[in-house]
Amino acid sequence: MEIKVVKDILGANEQIAQKNRQLFDSHHVFVVNVMSSPGAGKTSLILETIKRLKGKTRVGVVEGDISSSLDAEAIGKEGVPVVQINTGGECHLDANMTSSALPSVPLKDIELLLIENVGNLVCPAEFTLGENIRVLISSTPEGDDKPFKYPLMFHQADAVLINKVDLLPYLKFDVDAFSKTIRGINQKVKVFPISCTTGEGIDQWVSWLFDQMKKG
């Protein structure tokens, strides 16, 4: 006997993500899912963002890594609450892992939660966590062909940050062509060329993020 199903395989994740979102909304916490390949600058971006938002808004961080708490320690030094999730081999965070970490996150004391996903351009694209926006960092040494290789990630991002633009003189990376490619498949995306080393573009990114928070 054949049974018609037509149900999304990740429907269960989506349901938990919606519950997470309700919890965030009830605490008026704006949530950002930060994704990139390993080494593109997720932790550096979070650190720079925290520094610039000091005194303006209260930030919390969830750190997703396969193992180790190195990134969480670096962020903890900035004096913001940070919770580490070790996925124990899983290549992405999912809504359930996020949900399990939330009792340790002081939601009533923060207004912005930055979730650093596991470094990976494939798997995190499939799993929503309950976030308000998705931010993708693509760094110049990775090459400007990444949208073609990981279209889903670029298609779904609310903002793409081109990090390490201070290295552009040494690399073949066409910022205009790269931005045009992404905008071709993602009309809503904001593109920010930045450098966490020199600070270029970070103010623009933080100002945009702040605007998104105000909009909710």
Binding site: E2, K4, V5, V6, K7, I9
Partner: peptide
């Protein structure tokens, strides 16, 4: 190209 679902199952 973004589909990821169970269309149907055959059971006994």
């Amino acid at each position: 190209g973004k589909e990821l679902f169970v269309e149907s199952i055959e059971v006994e």
